[in-house]
């Protein structure tokens, strides 16, 4: 009898703990779950090439414009995965940095929370940071070779297009996200979002040319939830 009561108690305790942990709580708490997102695209990669007529020492003789980058197992790179509905979470402490290197924006797609970011120019030639945005004021600032870093502030969530008029093929994106629950897929199409408060969410994937797709998931405490999102044209 005592044994039975003990077992029941143990079950009750475990369930209780599990129930408590399952409640959406402040993120960053130990109870958060992880989202492992895989973004795929069945179509062909789109990479345009352009002959370069200037700054060839820095830019090379051929510029590649990587519009759709597809890796192994149809993994789609440069997709921003986010959880728009998630609340709380500790703000990201690492500053977003985009480098203009080899006449490319590196990384091609980056994501950040509203605030300041650094735009580096490690090419030793003139670039100009020309943003296309609606929620944030658009910028068109020259960044000559002696301006190694320029800080820019983006206060409103938005997908911001980065261009350079000096090198028309240069293209980059900065995703300003409302909460810290986001990631950008790597060459394998995978990204991890950690410390997501448990709960039911819509996970969104955004790609510069393929648009948006979303999926419903449930995040459980201490567990990794896998989600596969397929992008379509």
């Amino acid at each position: 009898m005592r044994k039975v009561i003990g077992v029941l108690l143990a079950i009750a305790l475990v369930t209780g703990v599990a129930l408590v942990a399952n409640r959406p709580g402040p993120a960053g708490a130990q109870g958060g779950g992880t989202i492992e997102a895989t973004v795929t695209y069945a179509g062909a990669p789109v990479v345009e090439k352009l002959k370069v007529n200037k700054d060839t020492e820095k830019c090379g003789t051929e510029a590649t414009i990587e519009k759709v980058v597809v890796g192994a197992n149809k993994g789609l790179a440069n997709a921003v995965v986010s959880v728009p509905g998630a609340k709380g979470g500790a703000p990201k402490t690492v500053k977003n940095v985009v480098d203009q290197h080899g006449c490319k924006f590196v990384p091609h797609v980056s994501a950040m929370m509203p605030g300041e970011m650094d735009l580096k120019n490690s090419d030793d030639i003139l670039h100009n940071i020309h943003t296309y945005s609606t929620a944030n004021p658009s910028i068109n600032k020259a960044q000559p070779k002696f301006k190694k870093v320029m800080a820019e502030k983006f206060d409103k969530p938005e997908m911001i297009k980065l261009t350079c008029d000096v090198h028309s093929w240069m293209l980059g994106w900065v995703a300003v996200m409302p909460n810290p629950f986001f990631g950008v897929t790597g060459a394998d199409g995978i990204t991890k979002i950690e410390n997501v408060p448990p709960g039911k969410y819509t996970v969104e994937a955004w790609h510069e040319t393929l648009g948006k797709q979303s999926k419903e998931i449930e995040v459980k405490a201490g567990q990794a939830t896998k989600v596969a999102i397929e992008m379509k044209k």
């Binding site: 100009n128 600032k141 020259a142 000559p144 301006k147 008029d165 000096v166």
Partner: peptide, 16 residues
């Protein structure tokens, strides 16, 4: 202040 809507950027922060 640059020429808005064109490639001509602002230079006030970009001169020595």
């Amino acid at each position: 202040v640059g020429v808005l809507g064109t490639p001509m950027p602002t230079f006030i922060d970009s001169v020595e």
